[in-house]
Design a protein around this nucleic acid. Structure first.
Lengths: 234, 234
DNA sequence: CGATCAATTTTCGTATACGATTCCCCTTGC
DNA sequence: GCAAGGGGAATCGTATACGAAAATTGATCG
């Protein structure tokens, strides 16, 4: 039920196109749109009770933001290529260690409490083997510290490849052997937060990213050894 | 006359909105749009001989990309705040050294020749004191190596804050004392390119960015000592 | 029985039109 | 003479409509 709003701002009003954009973004974030779904402007328009134009605006905007891909037959989830995923791991290694270091110094008590809660959720999820809850908790933990990044420009860049990170997460989370890695990583990071140790947070996150890349490569090779690209698993 | 195309692709065809988007982007890149210009969809539409819709699409897209800012009375250049400029310098230090290192290994002969030409232009501009040519040559040199970045995702991120970098450049270029710094920096970087020395290129670019930040701080303090934000100088 | 070509359907891009909102300027009152 | 309110203009958001491109389906021919 937690509707994650658009990266930029948490405005609930404004134009129809904006509303549709936010709603669709929420669906995308919650994985409610599968790789076989085709989003067509007229259908969206009918659903929201508006004309094609706002729906079209929202879809094109999402497409341009990279959350959707325009085809000749509607909008679909972007085919995330293997190449692109590796590129983004590289990007993450450039940006996120420093970003989390800055965030470590900026997190307030309420945010820390929130992170602790998601961490507890993740632990419960690991013990019960609930992959979906694991996914959600991990997503929230990440979003938690990202929201504390004081450099707004940096934060925006990191949020932009959110869906790609999500796609990778979905692939790796299917293997429960990865769950302890995630919980341990987030626990260490949280400890660093509590100690205001930005260096430790940065280092641990860097290691976490490498672990994630390894897990992805393993998942990718076992899942589609012949293919060059893999799509989100709904 | 060299029309720089949109970051993403060099497609000359496609839809009207795409064409308008690319043309406006070119104007923005060449600094042909001043801080007092108001871009209105109807005016753009008339100019291109189309209806409001494609013009509106292009403007909204540029706005969403961060190249323009939507106001209640047309689209204008985004007010770049002092804070944001500092943030972007930080971002650049995270991304560009590694990016140029990767580019160093990927540049082909034609691209190197192109860079050498822009370097010669910059030297001429410095000697003749032609600030505008200096600006252009510097822009082209930067765009040159950026286009060679093999990591497409990284390239896109760097291109996204193009206009902000441009705004800063405009401020600093007004002071001709900065011109030698730019020429020297680009010369050293070009030499590193020729030697395929990616480490040297990265190091030199990092220094270049710091020099740029210093030059900006100087220009900002002398120009508007009391203000928190500065706009482009047309 | 399969392949190729055409017709139909789906979807997109664009044009035109109509409120709604916002801003600016002018008028009017004090 | 100045300020406040109202009217007009400008711009935006959205609706509806039409032509074009692409794909799918069906039909015909080999």
């Amino acid at each position: 039920m937690t509707v994650m709003l658009a990266p930029d701002q948490a405005n609930g009003s404004q134009s129809q196109g904006q509303i549709i954009h936010d709603v669709l973004m929420g669906r995308l974030q919650r994985g409610e749109i599968g790789p076989d779904d085709r989003l067509v402007d007229t259908a969206i328009a009918t659903e929201f009770g508006v004309s094609r134009m706002p729906a079209r605006d929202a879809l094109m905007r999402l497409a341009h933001e990279g959350y959707l891909e325009a085809t000749t037959r509607g909008f679909v989830l972007p085919r995330v290529t293997h190449q692109e995923i590796l590129e983004i791991f590289d990007l993450r290694r450039m940006l996120e260690p420093r970003a989390i270091a800055l965030a470590t110094l900026a997190l307030d008590k309420a945010q820390l409490a929130e992170l602790e809660k998601t961490l507890a959720d993740a632990r419960r999820a690991m013990q019960s083997g609930n992959t979906e809850l694991m996914f959600k908790a991990s997503e929230q933990f990440r979003n938690g510290w990202i929201s504390a990044i004081p450099n707004a420009s940096l934060k925006q860049v990191i949020q932009r490849y959110m869906t790609q990170v999500q796609a990778v997460r979905m692939m790796t989370f299917d293997d429960r052997a990865n769950h302890p890695l995630i919980v341990n990583g987030n626990t260490d990071i949280f400890d660093a937060f509590m100690r205001r140790d930005s260096v430790a947070a940065a280092d641990r996150l860097m290691r976490f990213i490498y672990e994630g890349e390894t897990a992805y490569l393993t998942a990718a090779s076992s899942e589609q050894p012949q293919s060059k690209h893999s799509a989100k698993t709904a």
